[in-house]
Design a protein around this nucleic acid. Structure first.
Lengths: 237, 237
DNA sequence: CTGGCCTATTGGCTAGGCCACTGATCCATC
DNA sequence: GATGGATCAGTGGCCTAGCCAATAGGCCAG
């Protein structure tokens, strides 16, 4: 059988489910009206009527959008749009718990310490150049009275790159936005940026010397230092 | 503001929607029964009845699982499992690179070492009981000439729970399937299960003694030991 | 101004039902 | 024997109708 089947005649036929179309319509509507994070969708009953579908179907569409991270449905309140469309599930879950700063520090410590150690073992000359550049950028930034948030991120990114581990890098990226928040808080404290820079230099030196243990220790100390701002807000740990 | 915030009163309250729990149960069930791609879920009517929810709710759960890519629901036919489970983007990316065993070990070392240290600080008596139970299970399993893969996972899960960090636990879960592969490989080597058990005991003891440094060291040694099977296949590290 | 209470609004979930699709089987036709 | 149509059981798609539960905001007593 299947004599020729030359041309692609069979055309599997795109069978879409209603909820998919509804979800599509909703996102389109959102974009057309330029709705932003925090804005509310109409009540389910109304929206369902307006779209000409049952509430059950609309509900499925909302579940889909919720899973994808476009909206968050709040019982008794309504359906609101989320900002950053697709953060990882991890991040969403944590953000929901609000003040998880201690946990963020924990995982950051876990990952960055290992990253520092690996960087010390694997760094190339190019990696070193990138790290040094970020150090200079931070120094200059502080000189300008800036907090050096960007340069700080740049440094950690450079070290992460030097570790040459995709998995670790990706995982760091997943929780990056969470870390960024704690970073800003920390660097906002007086004198913090300069202390942070000192910590960075110690880490960079250890990496330069290819000393994994020292790099890990320096990074650990750095993360600890950076974290106590969080401890101030939440001393139950 | 933030008057005291002493005890953990606020209790953000984990409000989960029913469909989420249902989806969770289904995936759990899938894993427990070792269902693979192409296998079929029971009919909606039956499954709904078995789970004690309405068909509408089950349908929402299926939509969620479909969006995440776990299953594909076919009108008139049934619900079938797809290949690549609901693995995170990280996992997918890594798996694409196939032999990333070394990286898996890196991140596992990073996370589990920290988890062990935290567990030593935070473990409750209940945690200890769970850990000991997994130890016993593994011993019994080995006695039966088994490889003790399940008990091994149980142990690590118990330790992770003892660390009391959602973020860390979730991240571990994200890469769990990756780790599982390396685990099976390792435990398949002759004598490995017994060595592994010894390592577990050392970790458990350190946690019992509330000695974070020792726990971290023991876990690190354990991960290293477990890993050299990977090194055999890939010594470029 | 605080705290308790009420109520309208809005989502959560269920029950039950009919329709549409799929696959297997049977059968008439060629 | 092969082909194509009809049928039927099983399964998902979607709907209607309705009650429950959470939220926010207003009102009132202290």
């Amino acid at each position: 059988m299947t004599p020729k089947a030359s041309a692609e005649l069979p055309t599997p036929l795109a069978r879409t489910r209603l909820y998919e179309q509804v979800a599509e319509q909703i996102t389109t509507w959102i974009n057309q009206n330029g709705l932003k994070a925090g804005d509310r969708l109409p009540p389910e009953r109304e929206l369902a009527a307006r779209l000409g579908v049952s509430r059950a179907t609309l509900s499925q569409a909302l579940v889909a959008l919720e899973v994808v991270g476009v909206v968050v449905v709040r019982h008794g309140d309504g359906t609101v749009l989320t900002g950053r469309h697709s953060e990882s599930r991890i991040v969403e879950a944590i953000r929901a718990h609000a003040d998880r700063m201690p946990e963020i520090i924990d995982i950051r410590d876990a990952l960055e310490t290992k990253i520092a150690a690996l960087a010390a073992q694997r760094r190339t000359e190019d990696d070193l150049v990138a790290i040094d550049a970020s150090l200079d950028a931070m120094a200059a930034s502080i000189e300008h009275g800036d907090r050096g948030v960007d340069a700080d991120e740049q440094f950690h990114a450079a070290v992460t790159a030097a570790a040459h581990s995709d998995l670790l890098a990706r995982t760091m990226r997943e929780i990056a936005s969470l870390i960024r928040e704690s970073r800003i808080e920390s660097l906002s404290q007086p004198g913090r940026p300069r202390n942070s820079l000192t910590g960075h230099r110690a880490i960079a030196d250890a990496i330069r010397e290819r000393d994994p243990a020292a790099a890990a220790a320096a990074m650990h100390a750095h993360v600890e230092m950076v974290s106590d701002v969080a401890l101030l807000r939440d001393d139950e740990r």
